[in-house]
Amino acid sequence: MKIAPNSRVLITGGASGLGLALVLQFVERGARVLATDVHEEIPDSLRGLEGVSYLTLNVTQDVDWAKARDWVTETWDGLDYLFNNAGVAAGGRIELSEMDQWQWIVDINLLGVARGCRTFTPLMKEQGSGHIINTASAAGLIHPPRMTEYVAVKAGVVAISESLFHELKPYGVKVSVICPTFFKTNLTESLRGKDEQANKSAAKLIDKAKLSADTIAARVIRGIEKDRHIILTDRDGKVAYAAKRFARPLYYSMMKKASFQMAKKD
């Protein structure tokens, strides 16, 4: 089903990266968008966009989610699409990952999604419609070495999405989860951790990625319009996920090779 004009859309992390690309995709389709981010003032990237409103929303804060719900209710009297998109990155050898780093990524990437879902589920159940879209990663489906924090939270987002997919179906509410591999974004700015080797490797993969956030966003929209639950946005993710599901020995061989290659650099 095509995105309807005047659709009501809330996107977290909407000031940059995939979030901003999604904002622009929906604007092109005539939707009304509430872009949210942690900035106190509207970012320059969103300023002047027709059909776009801005609200400060730190996804770790319940009070900010309550304000977003109140804004949506008072301004639009409902919501058609909720994108739990805001996220950060961390990874590396587990002995170098401190517990405050774990808490940081769990609070944003996992509990931020949980807060968004629990905030807007009652509204969507009451209106008998709506679509929740959670941004995970191919790392939520396949779990490479030296990414324990990141794969843990992204796998959690996939799990939340699948559980809600079944839970909300009787109420007419849809749930999808986005699982891209590397694409050009500003995620490197949020990289945190003491494993400098892992940080440099991740930054290199992101910087050399061939796909742009705009391309990923367009594929996400197509996935939504085709009613897909798991939205795999690129060939590499599809191949890796298929290998894990249908050719487990090959998948383990790939992971083993990657792990030993990393170990040689220690």
Rank of each mutant, 00 (worst) to 15 (best):
Thr75His: 09
Trp76Asp: 01
Trp76Val: 05
Asp77Ser: 13
Asp77Val: 14
Gly78Tyr: 08
Leu79Met: 05
Leu79Lys: 13
Leu79Asn: 10
Leu79Ser: 00
Leu79Pro: 03
Asp80Thr: 03
Asp80His: 08
Asp80Trp: 04
Tyr81Met: 05
Tyr81Pro: 10
Leu82Trp: 01
Phe83Leu: 03
Phe83Gln: 08
Phe83Ile: 04
Phe83Ala: 02
Asn84Ser: 01
Ala86Ile: 12
Ala86Lys: 10
Val88Lys: 11
Val88Gly: 11
Val88Phe: 09
Val88Tyr: 06
Ala89Asn: 15
Ala89Pro: 09
Gly91Phe: 01
Gly91Asn: 12
Gly92Ser: 08
Gly92Pro: 05
Gly92Trp: 05
Arg93Asn: 07
Arg93Gly: 09
Ile94Gln: 09
Ile94His: 13
Glu95Lys: 04
Glu95His: 13
Glu95Asp: 15
Leu96His: 07
Ser97Tyr: 11
Ser97Cys: 15
Ser97Phe: 13
Ser97His: 07
Met99Phe: 12
Met99Thr: 14
Met99Ile: 15
Met99Leu: 14
Gln101Asn: 14
Gln101Lys: 11
Trp102Gln: 07
Trp102Asn: 02
Gln103Cys: 01
Trp104Leu: 12
Trp104Lys: 08
Ile105Phe: 04
Ile105Thr: 07
Ile105Cys: 08
Val106Ser: 03
Asp107Asn: 00
Asp107Leu: 00
Asp107Tyr: 01
Asp107Ser: 04
Ile108Val: 13
Asn109Gly: 01
Asn109Cys: 03
Asn109Lys: 05
Leu110Ile: 02
Leu110Val: 05
Leu110Asp: 02
Leu111Trp: 12
Leu111Glu: 12
Gly112Asn: 04
Val113Glu: 05
Ala114Gly: 05
Arg115Met: 01
Arg115Ser: 06
Gly116Glu: 00
Cys117Leu: 15
Cys117Asn: 06
Cys117His: 06
Arg118Gly: 06
Thr119Ala: 13
Thr119Ser: 03
Phe120Arg: 02
Thr121Met: 11
Thr121Lys: 10
Pro122Thr: 12
Leu123Thr: 03
Lys125Val: 08
Lys125Pro: 10
Glu126Gly: 04
Glu126Ser: 14
Glu126Asn: 13
Glu126Gln: 14
Gln127Phe: 11
Gln127Thr: 07
Gln127Gly: 08
Gly128Arg: 08
Gly128Trp: 09
Gly128Ser: 08
Ser129Asn: 15
Ser129Gly: 11
Ser129Tyr: 14
Gly130Lys: 06
Gly130Trp: 04
His131Trp: 14
Ile132Lys: 08
Ile132Leu: 08
Ile132Arg: 08
Ile133Gly: 10
Thr135Met: 11
Ala136Val: 03
Ser137Cys: 00
Ser137Ile: 05
Ala138Leu: 13
Ala139Leu: 14
Gly140Gln: 06
Leu141Asn: 10
Leu141Ser: 06
Leu141Val: 12
Leu141His: 07
His143Phe: 12
Pro144Phe: 11
Pro144His: 02
Pro145Met: 03
Pro145Gly: 01
Arg146Val: 13
Thr148Glu: 14
Glu149Met: 15
Glu149Tyr: 15
Glu149Ile: 13
Tyr150Cys: 10
Val151Phe: 09
Val151Arg: 09
Ala152Phe: 14
Val153Thr: 12
Val153Lys: 07
Val153Ala: 03
Lys154Val: 01
Lys154Phe: 00
Ala155Leu: 06
Gly156Ile: 04
Val157Ser: 09
Val158Asp: 10
Val158Cys: 10
Val158Ser: 09
Val158Ile: 12
Ala159Asn: 09
